[in-house]
Design a protein around this nucleic acid. Sequence first.
DNA 1: CTGAAAGCGCTTACAG
DNA 2: CTGAAAGCGCTTACAG
Lengths: 332, 332
Amino acid sequence: MKDVARLAGVSTATISRTLVSPDKVRAETRERVMAAIERIGYAPNALARNLRQMRTSTVILLVRQIVNPFYLELFRGVESAARARGYNVLMSNVESRPERELAYFDMIRERRADGVILATGALPSRRGRAPALPPMVVVSEYLPRSGLPTVRIDNVAAAAGAVDYLVTLGHQRIAHVTGPLPEVLSRDRLKGYRRALRRAGIEPDERWVARGDYTTRSGHAAAAALLRRRRRPTAIFAANDEMAMGAIKAAREAGLDVPGQLSVVGFDDINMASAWDPALTTVAQPSDEMGACAMDRLADLLAGDDTRNGDDVLETTLRVRESTGPVPRRAN
Amino acid sequence: MKDVARLAGVSTATISRTLVSPDKVRAETRERVMAAIERIGYAPNALARNLRQMRTSTVILLVRQIVNPFYLELFRGVESAARARGYNVLMSNVESRPERELAYFDMIRERRADGVILATGALPSRRGRAPALPPMVVVSEYLPRSGLPTVRIDNVAAAAGAVDYLVTLGHQRIAHVTGPLPEVLSRDRLKGYRRALRRAGIEPDERWVARGDYTTRSGHAAAAALLRRRRRPTAIFAANDEMAMGAIKAAREAGLDVPGQLSVVGFDDINMASAWDPALTTVAQPSDEMGACAMDRLADLLAGDDTRNGDDVLETTLRVRESTGPVPRRAN
DNA sequence: CTGAAAGCGCTTACAG
DNA sequence: CTGAAAGCGCTTACAG
């Protein structure tokens, strides 16, 4: 920087101003400075700038389990918005290890990051001396009554919409494979399932609700059990795509054609959903957009101009593909 | 820090030493300092430390396309090693946009990161004034004759091993779906395929090599074309799992049972491979370990004690699942 | 519009 | 083993 200043015949303050707020510098000076910067190949040292400004331009994205492809799409959205806003993104999977979550809060205390995008569905439980919450935006998941800015979808309505569609196709015996029920997202999707059934005049039957844990394996097991029933369902709505894929596998093993004898609907529209055989009908979340929106809100928060309040609720889309069809003739 | 120093009755230098090199501080002083730190709830400011030490403790992981699940596993490995070594990881997908790669090299120049783990398969082409390469380790991919420290598998041998296995099952008519052929990994796997065939006394037939681009769709199209032949293959070796999945889908559409009438082998062992129907036989890469190993080498490099030279070549494993079986009776 | 100077919060070579 | 002091490379309030 000193070299640039010498070459341009100005002070280092002017170099800095040219870079940070060029409008405060006379055009002629600015050009001289830019030429010198170019000549020397100068790049400002972010370390020094960060210290001076007491900001890192880095945010942390905390996800539940990184292997879930849904989070990947979320990350893409976060990253592209971050790039546009001049931030870097540190993604980290927590994998249900609370100490890892806390490690990330320490990173904020140590000023390694400016804020957090929380996609884990729960605030880290804090030890004795509860540190103040860092600037934070919740995405995908939400924390009821936390008052934190949140970017999400309406899981109840989206799930109900999927089941509505099955009803439209003539299905009455619609089963549901849930996610882990302590989680609010799983509960919301279950609620939507029940709401749609009632709306269609069908009394929800608890025996047609099977618990899964979002893995393909659990979807497979749950569906296998449901299909062993004497009166078996003609449609299964799974709370995510992986479980829907497991359900299709179970149907095939039971000798049932999908969608001829069993319709299956998933949730998320992960990358693999359209590649699956049969291509999966599923509720698409705008994951890119959700990530970008969360990053934008966090950046606003950090810039001190968070005008908005409450939740951003984004739209979902039911993508009808090959895994759903009209109810089989003899089934009703 | 000043507050801690006052409370402990020492200078800030001693606080710093207690944290950085505790052995240089008398035990009694150390305890007093630690108590004061605890009392005040002091956390050192990483921004200041970074500036002082001229290091960021951050590395960049550059991947080709983030949606590829393989990179996810790589990231996990990198991240866990990074955590152990005190580094943060910035993952970024380049998505074949060269300007993005360059952006990451700028980040090094601006001292936002200390080094790069390159998983893109190509050095960013640099503009006119070629800047010096940053501390860098290549992983998964490799750059022939670059002399850069590299962590990889032996793609030729691994591919040959997969084809050997098909030969063992009695297959003679073994087709191959390649990745994009400009890429060295795709070429290596093709080379391994040919080598195994020759070893088995089968003359490679170019008509049984179909080009794909690593997507499920391309695997589907390539396999569909192969299966339309009058003499159709009894086995397909695909250069990655997604294409193998597409191939299975094509087989089913052609009314062929997998593995009864067609065996399919993939490469990578992504998360979905075992969930696929039928569960995919595939060459498992030690992706976690590769990532961790790359991060370790980069950390050594940055610490100035990179003793090793040349490539780390890790072992692959053929995971035999349900998509492969003996050659059908009438086929030979 | 520009410069001189202070200061961000650490770490570390040096002196004792 | 400990302290006083310099300094990392910027940015910015202040003065002109």
